[in-house]
Write a protein that binds this DNA or RNA. Structure first.
Lengths: 141, 141
DNA sequence: AGCGAAGCGAAAAACACTGTCATTGTTAAT
DNA sequence: ATTAACAATGACAGTGTTTTTCGCTTCGCT
């Protein structure tokens, strides 16, 4: 019900694919999902959805400010619910797990770096790549 | 001559396409080049090179540590000569111009953020997107 | 010079994503 | 509730970037 309102507020009709995608982000354990991820889950749960629709819906949600698109280095885009608070990401290069962090001093220094080079900062993306402490990733390298 | 040695040290035969690509990075005014950029320059200067070779060579150079690959948000990879000194990037979303900067405090804080979340940091990428002060980008938005 | 491995260009394939289009679904006005 | 307008959908073809495959050529060690 709330999702329907969210879509209306964003100027989008409350269609089945859109409601399903939205609820998927809200209920999924994993905050960061790719178009392919979403498509697979929907197909496996019996929805009759097309991949093009998933891509369309994700783009619309991004434009409406409901989702944020990230690229990381994997070559495919992943999305997460826009909960308002900005944060940066740290991605495990072994298992793909994503954690979030925020550092006010880093944010501030990005602003001044931009200004110093004559850029009007619009956006930024800071992603750390590392190996997480969960098994089996913790074992070396 | 130095390039030949660089390639040998990297375990790569000193072939014409490889020497040409390497010299292109060393002599080009623009530090950041895409596969397509390189291919076009080579074709225009009369080389009989294939796009596949350019991609192969760029990947080999990356693995050999001669080049660094970046993705930024444009959908295509760009490469730059690995001169040893780490730096971050600021990209103009209007004209694609890329500038570089370095902030020791930001670097330090990334390390501690990783440690706090139980990650062993391997790499990181900080890219700021903005609008540069050159014409015509400076005009608004 | 001769040999085997490495490298090449061209073409086809893989991959993520976008465009097109006939059909279906949603919404606002009756 | 019905309906009419048109927005949204699924199937599928098409893009743009990058990778793979393949037969031929070149390299570099002897």
């Amino acid at each position: 019900m709330q999702d329907q309102k969210d879509l209306k507020n964003a100027g989008l009709k409350a269609t089945l694919p859109r409601l399903k995608v939205l609820s998927l982000f809200e209920n999924s354990k994993e905050r960061h999902l790719s178009a392919e991820d979403i498509y697979k889950v929907m197909i496996n749960s019996g929805e009759d959805v097309g991949l093009a629709t998933v891509y369309r819906v994700l783009t619309q949600f991004e434009q409406a400010g409901l989702l944020i698109r990230h690229h990381f280095e994997s070559g495919k885009a992943v999305f997460e619910l826009n909960t308002g608070g900005h944060h940066d990401h740290i991605v495990c290069v072994k298992c793909g797990r994503v954690e979030e962090f925020y550092d006010a001093e880093i944010e501030k220094r990005q602003e001044s770096a931009s200004a110093k080079l004559g850029f009007k900062m619009q956006d930024h993306s800071l992603t750390i790549y590392g190996i997480c402490d969960k098994q089996p990733c913790a074992n070396k390298n």
